[in-house]
């Protein structure tokens, strides 16, 4: 493919974008901001380094253990399980916790107000965070993929099994990341924060347990085995159970990131000749869940019948 046709193809893919330099402009601003912050954070550097060192260490250790039989014993599954378990740690614990902390900081650091008065809406803010979490996970995948390839070369594990394992880790990462993010967005006070943190950690442990079990089963038996049917059934059950919970938590999180309820409308006022307020009049099309209750001189206005 010539560079010209590649460019035209990319332009088609990018819609009205004039050139490739405009591509990052289409990214969610929250995603860009959080990605920059994440890449600079100490926790990310340490986790990435630890992940690499652990993978290297595990690879060297297993090679030394299997050195006599490594070429004919199809030791790929053992290596794959080991690498995927190591990968599951940052995916199930570090990524959701990072998202939890980032979302909760919007409340505790008093940055949410300033963020809310931009043109970003709540969905964009939460989406940006979520995709940052997935990008975060993607960098950890990059660290482990060479080791997964190495285990494939050792034999005993199919390419499809590895791809399915990766797909499962992506799926579980998305769920646990979403869980951490939404609970972080709900953590608007110290007590809520502690409670949400506890729930996040419980979710992480559950996800880690299920993910590692699935990976052990999948890598051991292969994707086309009879156990895979049970695995698929289990996965559907898991989804049926978690999807409503995630939906409810997402709704609560959106409420916490939205400072003003767009449905509620203020009252109108009626004045006398001297400019004093005599009545509050309900708007025809609005919910007034917060009726004014001034003491003393200002009488409460009864909502007009045909306006409520």
């Amino acid at each position: 493919m010539s560079s010209g046709s590649l460019r035209r193809w990319l332009q088609w893919g990018l819609g009205e974008s004039e050139n490739l330099a405009d591509f990052p402009d289409r990214w969610n601003p929250m995603f860009v901001r959080e990605l920059r912050r994440m890449l600079k954070s100490r926790s990310f550097s340490i986790t990435f380094l630890l992940l690499l060192i652990t993978c290297w260490g595990a690879a060297v250790y297993l090679v030394l253990v299997y050195q006599d039989s490594i070429s004919y014993s199809e030791s790929g599954p053992m290596f794959s399980r080991c690498f995927f378990t190591i990968l599951a740690f940052p995916l199930c614990f570090v990524v959701p916790m990072t998202l939890f902390a980032a979302a909760a900081e919007e409340h505790s650091d008093n940055t949410l107000e300033v963020l809310t008065i931009t043109t970003l809406d709540t969905s964009k803010i939460l989406n940006g965070y979520f995709w940052m979490g997935m990008a975060h996970a993607g960098i950890y995948y990059c660290a482990v993929v060479p080791f997964a390839c190495f285990s494939y070369l050792l034999g005993g594990v199919g390419l499809l099994d590895l791809v399915a394992s990766l797909a499962f880790t992506v799926f579980f990462t998305a769920i646990v990341a979403c869980w951490g993010l939404m609970l972080g967005a709900c953590a608007s006070g110290p007590i809520k924060r502690a409670f949400c943190l506890f729930l996040t950690m419980v979710g992480e442990v559950i996800c880690f347990t299920i993910l590692t079990s699935v990976l052990f089963l999948l890598i051991g038996t292969g994707i086309f085995s009879s156990d895979s049917i049970s695995l698929l059934g289990g996965l559907v059950c898991f989804l049926v159970f978690t999807a409503p919970i995630l939906a409810i938590v997402t709704g609560i999180a959106r409420q916490h990131f939205q400072l003003v309820d767009p449905i509620i409308k203020p009252y109108r006022v009626q004045l006398d000749d001297k400019g004093n307020v005599t009545k509050f009049i309900a708007r025809y099309n609005a919910l007034q869940v917060r009726p004014p209750s001034p003491p003393g001189e200002i009488p409460m206005a009864a909502p007009r019948e045909n306006e409520t």
């Binding site: 901001r33 920059r36 912050r37 994440m38 954070s41 900081e105 650091d109 940055t111 300033v114 008065i117």
Partner: peptide, 16 residues
């Protein structure tokens, strides 16, 4: 779009 608001105390992000 027409308004800029600078609150009394605004938070600062780390790593930025």
């Amino acid at each position: 779009k027409k308004l800029g608001f600078m609150p009394d105390g605004f938070g600062k992000y780390t790593n930025m």
